[in-house]
Amino acid sequence: MATGGRRGAAAAPLLVAVAALLLGAAGHLYPGEVCPGMDIRNNLTRLHELENCSVIEGHLQILLMFKTRPEDFRDLSFPKLIMITDYLLLFRVYGLESLKDLFPNLTVIRGSRLFFNYALVIFEMVHLKELGLYNLMNITRGSVRIEKNNELCYLATIDWSRILDSVEDNYIVLNKDDNEECGDICPGTAKGKTNCPATVINGQFVERCWTHSHCQKVCPTICKSHGCTAEGLCCHSECLGNCSQPDDPTKCVACRNFYLDGRCVETCPPPYYHFQDWRCVNFSFCQDLHHKCKNSRRQGCHQYVIHNNKCIPECPSGYTMNSSNLLCTPCLGPCPKVCHLLEGEKTIDSVTSAQELRGCTVINGSLIINIRGGNNLAAELEANLGLIEEISGYLKIRRSYALVSLSFFRKLRLIRGETLEIGNYSFYALDNQNLRQLWDWSKHNLTITQGKLFFHYNPKLCLSEIHKMEEVSGTKGRQERNDIALKTNGDQASCENELLKFSYIRTSFDKI
């Protein structure tokens, strides 16, 4: 039985969820670079991206490699990797027998973001014989899940209580170790020597080791999670996991709180800001991140802002960003909400898709409305799209047979046209069989910064309504002859009103 693990408890099935942008060198404390989270699957090609990484700022997932063999891993080693800020997950990587050479110096898994409450997941690794993470000293947050690894031993010899604050939620089941077939031998045991430290858990006094050649490092209890030197002297209180010299914040392997210019500090002093819960960055760093993602459509890219001495992905609820200094300031009234469309555009074809934009005031991208039916549609669209004030790209209304009016965009005031449909149009209306009105132009103002209007096959939309939009939106004169079809717009509506004058002759039985 794995020490510190839980057996036999019912657990939810383990679901495996399925960018080499360097964020800056980590400095003297770390020998390499800070790398983003990685999802490495199918083959070993991307694994080489770990070569210079000291910190993975995010998670590391290595999974679904069915053609790899043990010899493929023999020359692979990433000794610079010290810390993973989120979680480490391995799933069905064939041929991998140990992690001792792959990650010989991995010391800390912070667990800032977890995989279903777990910071370390080893699942269905069919050839893994031992973990071998002999320098792993601290899992700051989260638990361990090690399950269905039929060859995995050296679990009962690990004292997880020396690595985690609590072992109650560890789930370590259905491994070879369960069948008591392992016969784990710690260093020196074969020669009758006791080389590794022994600890007591559940009444068992057991030597602690990761492999037959690597003991588990056990520091004096007084050192807590700070770690200790090879001689057993406690590291500085700002260290986490390990250090090369005692009581020196510049000799830590990793930091308990924050890293700044080669030393570990309790908090980031001005003019620095907390970033990702582990390091200090200056304003320029946060500003660069903001600008890199301002026009990016890459998933996970955030326009970072500053709030409460932190550089964070977005302002919290009730705050909006001051564009001059990136500071989050309290909103006066309802907060603006910028919604970034991942692929640059979004099609609204149902109430469900409209709900995804609920509360958005600025759309960074283009909207395509293609709704053919739905219950209580006008009210639903207004509830979900009615706060949109600005669209950076274009607005396209296409084959939306259920629409009679666009009044559900009740606050839309600006279409920038930074991206144009077919390279020309910022407003595009095609084949809307029941569209009769755009907006009530006596109450609604709309500016279209650039781009043209396109109207074709809107049989109940009168040309007068379209011409009014040209005047109000500032697009009059931009359109070419064929942009607004004269014969297919309003051709099934009563669009022309003329005053009919009647004269009559009164007659009676005795007068003409």
Rank of each mutant, 00 (worst) to 15 (best):
residue 66 F to W: 05
residue 200 V to W: 02
residue 237 S to D: 10
residue 81 L to H: 00
residue 182 C to M: 01
residue 151 E to T: 01
residue 224 K to G: 12
residue 163 I to E: 01
residue 266 E to K: 08
residue 127 H to F: 15
residue 275 F to P: 01
residue 222 I to F: 07
residue 226 H to K: 11
residue 218 V to H: 09
residue 227 G to N: 01
residue 162 R to D: 05
residue 192 G to K: 12
residue 151 E to K: 04
residue 166 S to R: 07
residue 134 Y to E: 04
residue 135 N to A: 09
residue 205 F to Q: 06
residue 162 R to E: 09
residue 80 K to W: 06
residue 320 T to N: 14
residue 75 D to H: 03
residue 305 V to S: 06
residue 176 K to W: 03
residue 147 E to Q: 03
residue 110 R to K: 09
residue 206 V to G: 09
residue 331 C to W: 15
residue 173 V to H: 14
residue 237 S to R: 11
residue 185 I to M: 06
residue 80 K to T: 12
residue 40 I to R: 00
residue 111 G to H: 05
residue 184 D to N: 11
residue 306 I to E: 10
residue 257 N to I: 01
residue 245 Q to E: 13
residue 180 E to G: 07
residue 335 C to V: 03
residue 237 S to P: 14
residue 146 I to A: 04
residue 65 M to S: 09
residue 190 A to L: 09
residue 200 V to Y: 04
residue 90 L to H: 00
residue 183 G to K: 12
residue 118 Y to S: 05
residue 133 L to E: 00
residue 70 P to T: 10
residue 90 L to V: 06
residue 178 D to R: 05
residue 69 R to E: 06
residue 113 R to P: 05
residue 164 L to P: 00
residue 276 Q to V: 13
residue 242 N to G: 09
residue 36 P to L: 11
residue 186 C to E: 01
residue 258 F to H: 09
residue 175 N to K: 07
residue 142 G to S: 02
residue 139 I to M: 08
residue 135 N to V: 01
residue 231 E to S: 11
residue 45 T to R: 14
residue 85 T to Y: 04
residue 303 Q to N: 13
residue 32 G to W: 15
residue 205 F to V: 04
residue 296 S to I: 09
residue 264 C to I: 00
residue 248 D to C: 06
residue 258 F to I: 03
residue 336 P to I: 15
residue 44 L to K: 08
residue 253 V to D: 15
residue 156 A to R: 12
residue 241 G to K: 02
residue 145 R to K: 08
residue 52 N to W: 08
residue 120 L to P: 00
residue 143 S to P: 10
residue 279 R to C: 09
residue 42 N to P: 02
residue 154 Y to K: 05
residue 235 C to M: 00
residue 273 Y to L: 07
residue 40 I to K: 01
residue 45 T to F: 09
residue 284 S to V: 05
residue 81 L to Y: 00
residue 205 F to T: 02
residue 163 I to Y: 01
residue 116 F to L: 02
residue 231 E to P: 14
residue 213 S to R: 14
residue 248 D to V: 06
residue 132 G to T: 01
residue 100 K to V: 13
residue 303 Q to W: 04
residue 285 F to H: 13
residue 28 H to A: 14
residue 157 T to N: 04
residue 303 Q to A: 03
residue 144 V to R: 00
residue 42 N to S: 12
residue 48 H to R: 12
residue 54 S to N: 04
residue 36 P to E: 12
residue 84 I to Y: 00
residue 52 N to S: 14
residue 232 G to H: 07
residue 239 C to K: 01
residue 220 P to M: 03
residue 270 P to K: 11
residue 80 K to E: 06
residue 122 I to E: 03
residue 98 S to F: 03
residue 312 I to L: 08
residue 298 R to H: 08
residue 68 T to H: 07
residue 265 V to D: 03
residue 190 A to T: 10
residue 38 M to F: 03
residue 229 T to R: 08
residue 251 K to Y: 12
residue 79 P to Y: 09
residue 40 I to G: 00
residue 66 F to I: 06
residue 46 R to Y: 06
residue 108 V to H: 13
residue 70 P to A: 07
residue 155 L to E: 04
residue 55 V to P: 00
residue 63 L to Q: 14
residue 30 Y to N: 15
residue 309 N to Q: 13
residue 185 I to L: 09
residue 90 L to K: 01
residue 201 I to M: 09
residue 37 G to P: 08
residue 100 K to L: 12
residue 145 R to S: 04
residue 141 R to W: 03
residue 275 F to C: 01
residue 317 S to P: 10
residue 189 T to F: 13
residue 169 D to L: 12
residue 110 R to T: 12
residue 117 N to G: 04
residue 128 L to P: 00
residue 209 C to F: 00
residue 163 I to P: 00
residue 178 D to Y: 12
residue 164 L to H: 11
residue 34 V to I: 05
residue 102 L to Q: 01
residue 324 S to E: 14
residue 54 S to V: 14
residue 62 I to E: 00
residue 160 W to Y: 07
residue 44 L to W: 09
residue 182 C to P: 02
residue 198 A to M: 07
